[in-house]
Design a protein around this nucleic acid. Sequence first.
RNA 1: GCCGACGUAGCUCAGCUGGUAGAGCAGCUCAUUCGUAAUGAGCAGGUCAUCGGUUCAAAUCCGAUCGUCGGCUCCA
Length: 653
Amino acid sequence: MNEIHVRLPDGKTLALPKGASVLAVAEKIGPGLAKAALAGKVNGKLTDLRVALDADVEVSIVTARDPEGAEVLRHSAEHVMADAVKRLFPQVQIDVGRTDHSEKFQYDFLIERPFGPEDLVAIEAEMEKIVKAKQPFVREIVTREAAKKLFSERGEMLKVSRIDDIPTDAEISIFRQGDFIDLCRGPHVQRTDQIGAFRLIDVSGSYWRGDERNPMLQRIYGTAFADKKELVAYLERIEEAKKRDHRRLGPALDLFHLDPISPGSPFFHAKGMIVYNQLVAYMRELYVRYGYDEVMAPLIFNTDLFKTSGHYENFKDDMFLFPSHETEMGLKPMNCPGHAMMFGMRKRSYRELPLRLAEFSRLHRNERAGALQGLTRVRSFAQDDAHIFCRPDQVESELTQFFQMLREVYTTLCLDNVSVAVSTRGERFIGAPERWDIAEKRLVEACRAAGYEPAIKKGEAAFYAPKVEVDVTDVLGRVWTLGTVQLDMAMPERFGLKYITDEGSEGTPEMLHRAILGSLERFFAIYLEHTEGDFPLWLAPVQIVVLPITDRHHAYAQKVEQTLRAAGLRAQVDLRNEKLGYKIREAELHKTPIMAVVGDQEEANGTIAPRRRHDSSESSATSLEALVAELQREVADRRSLNRSRGGTQDLSS
RNA sequence: GCCGACGUAGCUCAGCUGGUAGAGCAGCUCAUUCGUAAUGAGCAGGUCAUCGGUUCAAAUCCGAUCGUCGGCUCCA
């Protein structure tokens, strides 16, 4: 048997000698394809072109046109960058590179002096030379000993250490390109010139092996595409994200601001508070329907409480603690211990369960300075937080109900790109491992029952509970974790929580921690960027602005404003001495959903001329009553703009 | 907390190798009374993040601190 059969995507089969490379398949199909080939896919798995085939397989050839192609050429760009760095700075030791799915690649270097922006320019120029030289990538299989010898001779001690990470039964491959050699699984492009366009983006420090006790390496980030056009499009997308940055939009739209006088603690302005409070009001409305009881526990506790919960031990350094009358007090960083106390303050009957305690209190966490980021990582925040105490046999239906409520909220907010993950027990945990296994399984099952196949994040759980994380993808394709539900393994026992069962015995309740929007501050930021400030009518700080054409119409305009306000609409009137076009422009820039133009005709007929945000088509005059009724309906329905499909402005009710 | 970059008027930014701070927008005043994304003119606005050092002289050079940004680590 010296022949193998290779099946192609179009169903055809090619016969090749055993041991033929993936590239040989491409050559057999055609010289054009062979030249354009970046990698192969063997039985669906991305494979280097130089890999030998020794059995019957399905093969497809990956070119720049395939999404995987970009990943391959970015990986090769990573090597070219490391090569360029070694050429310019022979004293550096290379660690490893990485190509993630966010269109970026990176490579870590050990060097005494940090890289600066000027270095990036020089490295980029050196990379350009390597790319122009059309150097081939050569793959070699080596033994573990040969690999170690090779890299220690080259002074690459970090690499030698990385070789030890490779499982003993795995094949060790290296790639050469020019004088550069790297330990690498591949796949790689054939020649450096197949990397069409690249750009180095940034440099930062990163700990070796991700451990902050280790020395810091210099990490360079870059991106690469098959051609210049795609690179430009990528850079434009970055610009777009900058335009939507909540740290820019927030102050510009008069929603909030941050000040060094209290790092990580936002000042919410009147307009921001409307959005914030509307979100809270919406959750409260759902709490009535879903059977939650809103409560309010203290903000400050004797730290004994956090010792009981275990948070003190785990998060002491990140809490605001202070002495008071000989005792140590602390600002609460989460609601669960307070709710556990509220549950335990008297004897509970099984008839009271499930007991769902919700709270919107402010929480304070003394986040490390470097961790702060706009509203997405703050020191002072509130959550749409709740803890559910229930009997063991009620856990399943509670999880079902949670997913149901979550889906309702996300649908209302038009966040329809949802995925979930289950985080499992990590190194730090409390409770019995066997119980963790059961809880993790239940969470996975609950996700499936809700129609989501969860990804598994190993070791990512909170110290007291495995958790489900619910992620949404925003208009720019960024993924954010919003909702979470955790099945607690420890708190009820630590607090000695009991209830009397229907048989008169004592039982320990199960405790679920859950949030749907998560940190309201963070959600605010994410939603602001997602919508670019174009809030749906029910959330818009100013829903309608009345625009009189001249000061002749001021009295009528003010009457209209009063009528709108009396109808419960957040209306304003623009009485400034400006032309209509100017006022419309201002209202557009402030993202006001509805403008009501009033002039001679409207005043004479008792009407208004409405205009929707982003809609310059002239609309006919409407009676005030009709407009009020329409807007009230839109608010009551909490209608949103659906922007997940191309950002269209159609109302999806 | 660690690595790097940055910090000039409310905002966006000029200000070359040291010689005493400038524009546009926003704000205020006046004129204009105007029909769907910017009417015109004028006025005012800054301890150049803070503190210290070098110098005859510092927004500019050096150091420290604070803050912000991009990462790392962390994220109850």
